[in-house]
């Protein structure tokens, strides 16, 4: 299963699906679409809707 990375357009924070965000209670392997809508970027507070997807690592 391929996993992707998402990058915050505001601050550059990267969400890596493979790693998840255990400190936010998001388990490794959690798909972007499965993250709650009220989740916000831990670095800058931008809402999920403002993230943009970056290239999936090969």
């Amino acid at each position: 299963m391929n996993t992707g990375k998402w990058e915050c357009v505001v601050c550059g924070f990267i969400y890596d699906e493979a790693q998840g965000l255990p400190e936010d209670g998001i388990a490794p392997g959690t798909r972007w679409q499965d993250i709650p809508e009220d989740w916000a970027c831990p670095d800058c507070g931008v809402a999920k809707a403002d993230f943009e997807m970056i290239q999936i690592a090969a």
Partner: peptide, 21 residues
């Protein structure tokens, strides 16, 4: 560009050109 990413660009492996979106 995302200004906060200037101070961790080496860690994310980005050149100045790649920081520009």
């Amino acid at each position: 560009y995302a200004k906060p990413s200037l101070s961790n660009a080496f860690a994310t492996g980005k050149t100045p050109d790649q920081l520009q979106s």
